[in-house]
């Protein structure tokens, strides 16, 4: 057998050219196109993701600013409410004190009145008691007018002592 067989050599050349044509048309070109398309799609997706991330960062910044603003407003409102509360508290305390003083004064007045009343009752009771006792002791020596005069004199002396 010859080392180089020209018909076989030509057949192999034709065979390879056919293989190249097939592989190129159904393999390399469509697959390279697909790879390019995928590369572009990935790049576009990455760009979109980057844009979305930038938007998210911007929104995050805006939200953070808004949250800070809301927190400031809330803090101011709380401070205002505390101040109002303190004012109301002071007012309530003041009113309480006034009412307590009023109640105390009223109570003192009532006590004074009740004391006077009690003293008058007590004096009346004492007069009657003394009258009763004196009447029993000296009923036979003095008449009624003499008795009364004597007792009232006695009571006047007592009140003078008291005053």
């Amino acid at each position: 057998m010859d080392l180089i067989n020209v018909p076989q050599l030509l057949t192999q050349i034709i065979g390879f050219l056919i293989a190249f044509w097939i592989l190129s048309s159904v393999g390399f070109k469509p697959l390279l196109k697909m790879l390019d398309e995928r590369k572009q799609k990935i790049a576009a997706d990455f760009a979109a993701a980057e844009r979305a991330r930038a938007d998210m960062e911007r929104l995050k910044g805006e939200f953070e600013a808004k949250i800070k603003e809301i927190e400031g407003t809330a803090r101011a409102r709380v401070a205002e409410a505390v101040k109002e509360g303190e004012k109301i508290q002071a007012q309530i305390v003041e009113e309480g004190r006034a009412k307590a003083k009023e109640s105390l004064d009223k109570a003192l007045t009532d006590i004074e009145r009740e004391k006077d009343k009690a003293l008058a009752e007590m004096r009346s009771t004492m007069v009657n008691s003394v009258l009763f006792a004196t009447e029993r002791v000296i009923s036979q020596n003095l008449d009624d007018a003499g008795h009364r005069k004597l007792i009232e004199q006695f009571l006047a002396e007592i009140e003078g002592v008291k005053k």
Partner: peptide, 28 residues
């Protein structure tokens, strides 16, 4: 005498079949 040519055509056939199967219904 043409055994090598026959095998080279078998190789070509296999490559063509594999690549046409791979690139048919290409998906992302």
């Amino acid at each position: 005498s043409w055994v090598d040519v026959i095998f080279s055509w078998i190789v070509i056939l296999i490559l063509a079949l594999v690549f046409s199967a791979a690139s048919r219904n290409r998906k992302m």
